[in-house]
Structures are given as structure tokens and as C-alpha cells.
């Protein structure tokens, strides 16, 4: 449990790529609402979820809203804990420089330990 009473540790686990399905966008909408509840919020990007943070997304051609700038706005909502799976980045030919926002890169084991510390895990 979190140290402060009444505050829970919420982790949002993102394992899906954007645009192919709506999960990434609607997950982000929950994250923004959660910010208003003064909880201890973190986001984890695993597997194809790391593609959500790829720089240079251009969605005009698919006539869909590009929601990737929202990840950069999270800091303004005091959501600063963004964790990215090291192995998922490497497997997809990406490095931290390919991402559009500052993140903490962790290996799978470290992510697993972090998950065990949560009170609520929401996976999309």
C-alpha cells in the first residue's frame, strides 16, 4: 500500500499498439481522469505498447486523431512515472531516442517487481 492514507498506487499497463485498436486511446482517457483523483499514478508500456510512444506519428492519412502529443502533456497533470520495457524496445528496433517523451527504461524483472507493489492495476 502507499504510505499516505487514502492514496492508492494505480498502474496502467499498456501492451497494445495505437490505431489498430482503440485501447491505447481510451486507456489514455482513463489516465487523464485518474490524475484528478490525487492518486499515485504510473504507466507501464510493455510489448507492442511501446509503439504508443513512438515519435513522428502522422495520422492524417488514416483520418484519425493523433493522440500521441497527449503523452507529453501528462507531466502537466503530475503524471511523471512512465516505465518502458527494455526488452520490448530492443525487440522492436527502438531506443529511448525514438520515443516522444521522457521515460524510465526498466527490464522485465524490474517491471515485475514494480507491479507487485501496486494496489490497482488497469490493463488495456
Amino acid at each position: 500500500m502507499s504510505e499516505e492514507p487514502g492514496i492508492k498506487k494505480f498502474m496502467f499497463v499498456n501492451r497494445k499498439a495505437p490505431y489498430g485498436t482503440v485501447y491505447a486511446l481510451e486507456a489514455l482517457e482513463v489516465v487523464l481522469i485518474t490524475a484528478a483523483f490525487d492518486q499515485d499514478v504510473s504507466l507501464a508500456f510493455l510489448d507492442d505498447g511501446v509503439f504508443q510512444l513512438r515519435k513522428g506519428q502522422q495520422t492524417k492519412g488514416i483520418e484519425t486523431k493523433n493522440f500521441s502529443p497527449t503523452y507529453r502533456a501528462l507531466e502537466g497533470y503530475d503524471i511523471e512515472k512512465l516505465y518502458v520495457e527494455k526488452e520490448a524496445l530492443a525487440a522492436r528496433g527502438l531506443t529511448e531516442d525514438d520515443l516522444l517523451v521522457d521515460v524510465t527504461v526498466l527490464d522485465r524483472k524490474a517491471l515485475g517487481v514494480l507491479m507487485d507493489e501496486q494496489d490497482v492495476i488497469l490493463s488495456f
Partner: peptide, 14 residues
Amino acid sequence: SQALDSCVQVAPGG
């Protein structure tokens, strides 16, 4: 699906 594989690689146990 990779779900089970990812789960057991990330989670320490349980």
C-alpha cells in the same frame, strides 16, 4: 498470443 509469455517473463511468480 504472447500474453502468457510476457506474463511469466515479467512476473517473478505468484
